[in-house]
Design a protein around this nucleic acid. Sequence first.
DNA 1: TTGTATGCGTTATCAT
DNA 2: ATGATAACGCATACAA
Lengths: 336, 336
Amino acid sequence: MVTITDISKACGVSRATVSKALNGASDVSPETAKRVRDTAASLGYLPNAAARALKMGRSYNIGVLFSDATGGGISHEYFSRILESVKAESERLGYDITFISKDLGRQSMDYYEHAKYRSCDGVVIASADFQDPAIIRLAASEIPTVTLDYSFDSRTSILSDNVRGVETLVRFVYEKGHRKIAFIHGEMTAVTQKRLASFRKTCAELGLSIPPEYIRPAIYHDPRSSGLETRALLALSERPTCIFYPDDLSFLGGLSELEKHGLSVPKDMSVVGYDGIPLSQVLRPRLSTYRQGGERMGKEAARLLVEQIENPDTWIPQQITVEGELLPGSTVSEIG
Amino acid sequence: MVTITDISKACGVSRATVSKALNGASDVSPETAKRVRDTAASLGYLPNAAARALKMGRSYNIGVLFSDATGGGISHEYFSRILESVKAESERLGYDITFISKDLGRQSMDYYEHAKYRSCDGVVIASADFQDPAIIRLAASEIPTVTLDYSFDSRTSILSDNVRGVETLVRFVYEKGHRKIAFIHGEMTAVTQKRLASFRKTCAELGLSIPPEYIRPAIYHDPRSSGLETRALLALSERPTCIFYPDDLSFLGGLSELEKHGLSVPKDMSVVGYDGIPLSQVLRPRLSTYRQGGERMGKEAARLLVEQIENPDTWIPQQITVEGELLPGSTVSEIG
DNA sequence: TTGTATGCGTTATCAT
DNA sequence: ATGATAACGCATACAA
């Protein structure tokens, strides 16, 4: 490994001068600076991140927390999209990314400890169970954080506009003539509560009274459970004309159940999804859904986190809401 | 930040002793060891990974390289599954994961330099363009590596059994009576070459002669391109009875094209996919496909990499092939 | 403009 | 069994 000491010897200057030259300090002559840089390059010098972190108390390393509370964090389209864009933006800003988890090896650390152990300059928290004391501890710590889809008091967060998303979808199907709308939702997370509240509120605003049995709990990304709820809806004496699914993937579970009953989409039953994953637009008919702005969310998360890291004292926590967009698709029919 | 110095003061022993006690050295009395450990715990001590890495020349950090050659590395099911299991296994073994990329900030590093800069103890290379000189440099370096789905000479690799996978599928459809089999493949990577060769070989073994126009190039994970090739196949005077798609997602592009022609699957056309992503088994009809052993591949990759890291001199490079499994589904019909 | 000295937190060597 | 000391690679305050 070639170090600044090697360069200093090769150049006949002190290590301090080499360090300065390499970091573009002003108090070093242009000639020596160039000479140092050239020999550094020719020697194949690489700074040592560990040494730098130790000395400066800054690691240029961002922790990413994708807990698998809801099962298989990364592998869900929405989260992998976010991860991808957090990664891209962080790298653009000169930061590396490290996964933060509990239990590293036989050590049992919580998230905060793990982040400290790796001297993460900040952490992006996504896909987490925000009731988990370990998450709360991290978010309440001195480590800069940005949370996705949940906002802790006085902390920075990036929120997908769930309220607007559901409202948009409800109004969309309403305008197509639907009045009997069923809502299958995922586990009761903060996100789910917002979506459900928005559903109820928008329906109320539109003068729709939704019978309680139209609102049904299922599990995100689990086609089976949404299939079962679909079956239950079809068994009602008064069937809905349109079904909201917790997400695009769950819709597929509903679809196969509908087909079993000989119902075709959207002729006999209208449906909408949520997320707008690429798959949804490849299906025929194209799924009517709401595309969350995952890329923008990830990018903003990284941007704000770095800003917070680099300006700790002037930083003002903010909540940014990223709007998505309606993908009209063709799984909602015009009726009555 | 609480350091071993703090502990040494609180305990009235030297820093050296604290270090030994914490690392379970044998030359420290059980009593002191316990006392040190207890005060460490009560003070909330955490080791500093950077200092440790600097001193020991080991970072307990594994680099993961998901270059986006084919576009959006992580976000493809197959790769996110692998990533997830690499992550899980690495953490189990006490290693953290850091993404390796080119161009960190305004610095322009290649992969090797990036890995060095972060003192990665080893690197898992996946989803990469293995012709890229930067990849080749990394794989040829002194840094322990494990590649996925490609094997460099004298290096360790984990291979999905593409040959067997395609052969299994061909024999599967053959036994259902199909003789006119078309093969739409992805970009000409090493993986694709293996699959294509296996297709040709198996067909030959079965005495099938496949006309050249049955073999068509498309793009992985791009339903559109597979849709176009499907259209081309349907335009042939002698249509195939079964179409192989590059992957499960691409099949959807074919499906919509088939539906446009009023053909239904599998009644009028049989199809098979590749990958066995969860989606494929949720669709109706269930897609006939071959499920690659992504989880096992990721787990093995992490395991072998760590083994190699921890036994550098006794290490013998190995190529492990992970078999997948046929998911019969119901998109291949019995014919004549 | 350049160099000297010091310390970041840890582990390893060698005395005691 | 314990401790003093040095060293890992780097950046900085300060002296020259």
